[in-house]
Deep mutational scan, measured.
Amino acid sequence: AEIMKKTDFDKVASEYTKIGTISTTGEMSPLDAREDLIKKADEKGADVVVLTSGQTENKIHGTADIYKKK
């Protein structure tokens, strides 16, 4: 799966169907969080990951919607 910015995804959204939401939390780098989200998306058969939230304090927390091409 590839990560797309919401603004970029909005241009092609009609080509995809939302298949779920994924999240990651833990003591990790932003890059590790990104890789974890991609891994989870791949496991669910998603083609595209669109980040919906991200937070960093002591731990990273990120959520994303996942989509499959129609």
Rank of each mutant, 00 (worst) to 15 (best):
V48W: 01
D47P: 01
V49S: 00
Y67W: 03
K40R: 09
S29C: 10
S23E: 13
I60E: 10
E2Y: 14
N58Q: 09
V49Y: 02
V50H: 00
K44V: 11
K44E: 07
Y16N: 00
T17K: 09
D8W: 04
N58A: 11
D8M: 05
A64C: 05
Q55K: 08
L37M: 06
D36F: 14
K59F: 15
D8L: 05
K59P: 13
D42G: 12
D42A: 13
T63I: 07
Y67K: 00
V12I: 11
T52M: 11
I19C: 06
D65V: 06
I19E: 00
K44H: 11
T52G: 11
V49G: 02
V49A: 04
A64Y: 15
N58G: 14
G20M: 04
K6M: 09
E57L: 12
I3E: 04
G20K: 01
K69D: 02
G45S: 05
V49I: 15
D10K: 07
D32W: 08
G45Q: 05
S53V: 11
L51A: 01
I60S: 11
T7K: 12
G20I: 01
K5Y: 14
G20C: 07
A46G: 04
T21C: 11
K69I: 04
K18C: 10
A33Y: 07
T52Q: 11
H61D: 10
T25N: 13
I66N: 00
E27M: 14
I22V: 08
I19M: 07
T17W: 14
G62M: 15
G20N: 00
I60L: 11
V50D: 00
D47N: 07
K68F: 04
G62Y: 15
F9N: 00
A33T: 07
F9V: 00
M4G: 01
V48G: 01
I19Y: 02
K11R: 10
D10R: 06
A33H: 06
G45A: 04
G26D: 10
A1C: 12
T24A: 07
T24N: 05
T63A: 07
L51E: 01
K68N: 03
D32V: 08
S53F: 15
T63D: 08
L31E: 15
M28Y: 05
N58Y: 10
P30E: 14
N58R: 07
H61Q: 10
G20W: 03
G20A: 05
E43V: 06
V48E: 01
E43H: 07
L37W: 04
K39N: 06
G26V: 13
D8R: 04
A41R: 01
P30K: 07
K40E: 04
K39D: 03
K69T: 03
K70N: 09
E43W: 06
T7N: 09
T24Y: 13
K5H: 12
E57F: 09
L37V: 03
K6D: 07
V48Y: 02
A64L: 05
K40L: 09
E27R: 11
V49C: 04
D8T: 04
I60T: 11
G20L: 02
K69A: 05
S29K: 08
K70V: 08
I60D: 08
G26I: 13
K59W: 15
S23V: 10
I3T: 03
T17H: 10
F9H: 02
M4W: 11
M28H: 07
T24K: 02
A13F: 06
E27H: 12
Y67P: 01
S29E: 08
G45N: 07
T52F: 08
D42Y: 12
E43C: 11
V49R: 02
I22F: 04
K6L: 07
K68E: 04
D10E: 12
V48D: 00
A13K: 10
K70Y: 05
K40M: 09
I60K: 09
D8Q: 06
A1M: 06
E27W: 14
A33N: 05
T63P: 07
M28N: 07
K59Q: 11
K5P: 08
A64V: 07
S29Y: 08
M4N: 01
E35D: 08
G54H: 13
R34D: 04
T56L: 12
A33E: 06
Q55W: 15
K18L: 13
D65Q: 04
G62C: 15
D42L: 13
K11M: 08
H61R: 12
K44C: 15
E2L: 15
K44I: 11
I66A: 03
H61V: 15
T17E: 10
T21D: 03
T25W: 11
K69N: 04
D47R: 04
I66R: 02
N58I: 10
K68T: 05
N58M: 11
K39W: 05
T63F: 09
T7L: 10
E57A: 12
T21Q: 09
E57I: 09
L31P: 08
S23F: 12
A41C: 03
A41K: 01
F9L: 03
D10P: 02
K44P: 01
V12N: 03
S23I: 09
D32G: 08
Y16I: 02
M4Y: 05
